[in-house]
Design a protein around this nucleic acid. Structure first.
Lengths: 343, 343
DNA sequence: AATATTTTCAAAACCGGTTTAAGAAAGGAA
DNA sequence: TTCCTTTCTTAAACCGGTTTTGAAAATATT
């Protein structure tokens, strides 16, 4: 491998000078030219390990997520990677292990392998561990979660998304709207339920606890919870599911019962993932800008690492209701999008 | 940050001795104990950058893929990451840029940021660039592709998968089987077409070129190409699509025409992705062990980096036909799986 | 007890960069 | 011309590990 020493020898200057050229410190034009010439001739590429050791900066950002693929985490990775690459950083991905999670966090930190950490779905990691990172002044950005004002976060405005979905159903004339939720302990689930309730209230409709069933975001639970809804004395005429997978499960459950979507029961999902377009009737869904969430988080991280930004920010991205056939309102798209930024 | 020097000072030995303890070189029991004690007390963690510089090994493996998410690349990442983590390696993911692909490859190599490279879908990268890596003796494992005997590869036995899918349809009585293929220039597409033709031939059925339409693996192209098939004078009674997304697109196309699946036209897909279970009728599909492909590639890489294996291997993983309703044969599953290894 | 052999450890060099402190060269003012 | 700045350049130290070399200590042999 050709090193900085080789370049120095070839261009007749010292290592220090080559380093200055590389880092844009003032150098006389002719020295600059000679060094660049040597770099080109030797096809020299600086050794990142050496540079990292010296600078105490690896130019690597770590992503910790409970899963590294699927409807949600796939697009996040994509969004993060693109921004990082364009800014000269690399991305190390790591799945959070349910068991040894804090350990691996602490290790990542102490090893100094990464310059900063983007943590997706911090609820898997534990608030304490995250706050400990902060205490060590380690750059952290959370995606899809929030552990208080001290730590940067990027999330979806779940409340607005749910509100829009439910209001849409109400305006179509539905008065009994079932909900298949995610795990109730999650903050975003509570937000969405609040959006649902507020939409009902705004239009003078009563809230019926029996219409809210708890699922786990997965297909099977949508199927299961829809069955439960169908066993009520009085069916809901519409269902709002907090994920597309559950919405699709719900649709299958409805079909099995011999009913039709949207004629007998209208269905709205959440995510607007690829599958929403593939099922019949096509699924009306609350679009989350997942890819953008990753990109925004990565941009924040880059800004921190470059020293451009110091203040903690909490960003909420807005959702869009994408109307297809499963809700019973023809149309194609109904856009509403914005980025709100809250300090 | 606490360094090896601090540990040395605390335990009253030299840096060298601490290093020996850490790397399991012979040391007297009482020295060992003292050093370990100091390590624990100081909560010392070696700096990976320094170690990487000294050892010329970063313990990072790079993955280059055209996409980092979705049905195919998502599970691959998952499979790779798990194996690497368990073996003490980290994974850097990088999307291959259509434009500057060779450049970034060469850069990764020269920078010595990663110890080895797993390249998914090498057709995007270019054979020359890959062979150049080999020339530099850089560890490379290809996933889902093959550029000759010199380079390690892991792929799916596409031929067998297609053969099984088509033979299954033939045994159900179909005599005119349409195909919606991937891009014909891809090797695996040619293999699958060969599987299709051989199945026909084995059962004495004629091959009709008009029944093979070229798609691009995406949903829309399935829809489009099925429409083309439906414009033939004589419909196929079954369709084999080379991806689930295209199969689902084809199904929608069939429905639009007022026909039913599988009654009028049977459909079989390829991938057995999550969506296969979500559409109605549920999709019969050729299951690719995608996750395992990633794991196998990662294991090979680890073996190379640990110096355990030197010979080049070409591994083909077998597929399984998963039977659901879209093909018209009730049943649940029909397993057939194996790993064949070819030197 | 004297010598040979083995074991254990420390000093120093090294990996390939960056940075500091100081010297050399160039330019400007008196 | 001389002296004072300002601009470039470099030697040496440093980042935090690993590894080689050789000496001291411990053990074995005679």
């Amino acid at each position: 491998m050709v090193t900085i020493k080789d370049v120095a020898a070839r261009s007749g200057v010292s290592k220090a000078t080559v380093s200055r050229v590389l880092n844009n410190y003032p150098v006389s034009p002719k020295t600059y030219a000679r060094v660049m010439q040597a770099i080109k001739e030797l096809n020299y590429q600086p050794n990142v390990q050496a540079r990292a050791l010296s600078l105490k900066r690896s130019h690597i950002v770590g992503l910790i997520a409970p899963d590294l693929q699927g409807i949600f985490y796939g697009p996040i990775i994509l969004g993060i990677e693109e921004v990082l690459r364009k800014n000269g950083f690399n991305l190390i991905v790591s799945r959070s292990q349910p068991d040894s999670r804090e350990f691996s966090l602490a290790k990542m930190l102490k090893e100094r392998r990464v310059d900063g950490l983007i943590i997706a779905t911090p609820r898997e990691i534990g608030e304490k561990a995250i706050l400990a990172l902060k205490k060590d002044n380690f750059p952290v950005v959370l995606i899809d979660g929030n552990v208080g004002p001290a730590i940067n976060s990027v999330e979806i405005n779940s409340y607005n998304g749910a509100f829009a979905a439910c209001e849409h159903l109400i305006k179509l004339g539905h008065k009994r709207i079932g909900v298949i939720s995610g795990p109730l302990k999650y903050k975003e689930v509570q937000d969405r339920i609040k959006g649902y309730r507020d939409a009902l209230e705004k239009h003078g409709l009563p809230f019926d606890k029996k219409l809210v069933k708890q699922g786990n975001y997965m297909f099977d639970s949508g199927l299961q919870q829809m069955e439960n809804l169908l066993q009520l004395d009085q069916f809901p005429t519409a269902v709002f599911a907090m994920s597309d997978l559950m919405a699709i499960g719900a649709m299958q459950s409805i079909f099995r019962k011999g009913l039709q979507v949207p004629k007998d029961i209208a269905v709205v999902g959440f995510d607007d993932s690829e599958v929403a377009k593939m099922v019949l009737p096509r699924l009306t869904s609350v679009r989350q800008p997942i890819n953008e969430m990753g990109a925004v988080a990565a941009r924040k991280m880059v800004a921190i690492l470059k020293g451009d930004e110091k203040e903690v920010t909490h960003i909420k991205l807005e959702t869009t209701l994408v109307i297809r056939e499963s809700c019973g309102a023809g149309g194609t798209k109904n856009a509403k999008s914005a980025v709100s930024r809250i300090k």
